[in-house]
């Protein structure tokens, strides 16, 4: 299979540590997914309706999303018919090719866009409990490693203990945290933070916000205001608006992406908690339906367990067993 070989070659040339981290983090995903794919091929030697139905279920069980799955399976049906594919083993590579196609391999937009001349401001948004504060802590570490001066803005003034939580991360990583009292106006915190970060000539300002469900009009308006204030103080900012998504989330992740995009023009996604048994298939659906790129993935609890998203690595992780067997 030339497709897999190409993929494998390109991936093996990359730094081993990153690959290992990806592989470890995706172990669960890969095991169950490719295991099932192989079982599927063994179980259904011929490509028929039962085969497609099972494939549908397999993809749905990975939270890929009903629409995306139906679309994909219909395409495969068409291909199987046109090219007269009878053997199920022959259609597996087509499946993975289609999947990676949907993930979009160009990957240029999966890099963070940094402000070339001045401070980069990154705003973090998302629903409750997805891991915004933790992601900020990890990303602060990531930038610190690159010798960048980082400042954090404690914009979650609502949840009990949120400011303290970011404070702990600030101490851990060794960066300043700009904060006000619990219950104060988050937009005011951002205003303060931008001026404080400017006067400290920071390279990067990471802005935390309170988790909010995307269907709460007032809270989404508050978020719009937070973004407006940032924009007013630094016209080119925010340079990134990152939506933090929990990989265990089902179809609602699509609604989250839609609503947060509408309110804050989300530029990228951080997919967290990918080290569990959740399959993270929603990435495909979101890329396919909303064209928002994934920029980082959270692969564990340690401070360096946040990795830049790499579509090739991701796909390789998913299909590694398949790739090696072919």
């Amino acid at each position: 299979m030339s497709f897999f070989k190409k993929l494998k070659d390109r991936v093996t040339n990359q730094t081993d540590s990153v690959t290992t981290k990806f592989k470890d983090g995706l172990q669960k995903t890969r095991d169950s997914f490719s295991e099932k794919m192989n079982t599927l091929a063994a179980k259904y030697r011929t490509v028929d309706e039962d085969f497609f139905e099972e494939l549908e279920e397999l993809l749905i069980s990975a939270d890929v999303g009903v629409n995306t799955v139906m679309e994909l399976v219909d395409e495969l049906r068409e291909i199987a018919k046109l090219e007269n594919v009878k053997n199920s083993a022959d259609i597996l590579p087509v499946i993975s090719e289609k999947l990676t196609e949907k993930l979009d391999f160009t990957g240029d937009d999966s890099k963070l866009s940094m402000n070339a001349d001045g401070m980069t401001v990154i705003l973090f948004v998302g629903v409750n409990g997805v891991g915004k504060t933790t992601t900020i802590g990890k990303l602060a570490h990531h930038f610190k490693e690159q010798d960048k001066k980082v400042v954090l803005a404690a914009g979650d003034t609502f949840r009990a203990g949120a400011i303290e939580q970011l404070g702990v991360w600030g101490d851990r990583v060794g960066v300043d945290v700009i904060k006000q009292a619990e219950g104060s106006d988050p937009a005011a915190v951002m205003y303060d933070a931008i001026h404080a970060a400017k006067s400290r000539s920071a390279d990067v300002l990471l802005c935390d916000t309170a988790g909010r469900l995307q269907n709460k009009v007032n809270l989404m308006k508050e978020l719009e205001k937070v973004k407006r204030v940032i924009q007013r103080e630094v016209p080119s900012a925010p340079h990134e608006v990152l939506l933090v998504l929990d990989a265990t989330t089902g179809q609602n992740a699509m609604a989250q992406a839609k609503q947060f995009k509408e309110a804050t023009d989300v530029s990228g996604i951080v997919l967290t908690k990918l080290d569990g048994t959740a399959k993270g298939g929603i990435v495909l659906a979101i890329r396919n339906e909303l064209d928002i790129p994934v920029k980082f993935v959270g692969l564990g609890e340690k401070v360096d367990d946040l990795q830049p998203f790499d579509a090739e690595q991701f796909t390789y992780g998913l299909f590694q067993t398949l790739a090696e067997e072919k």
Partner: peptide
């Protein structure tokens, strides 16, 4: 979390098997 996807089954099964939970609270 009420927004959990297909993985909810794995999570619930595992916690129940190891701890024998007595009930569930559905949040959000």
């Amino acid at each position: 979390d009420a927004m959990t996807g297909q993985d909810a089954v794995n999570v619930a099964e595992q916690f129940n098997e190891l701890l024998e939970i007595s009930g569930v609270v559905l949040t959000k």
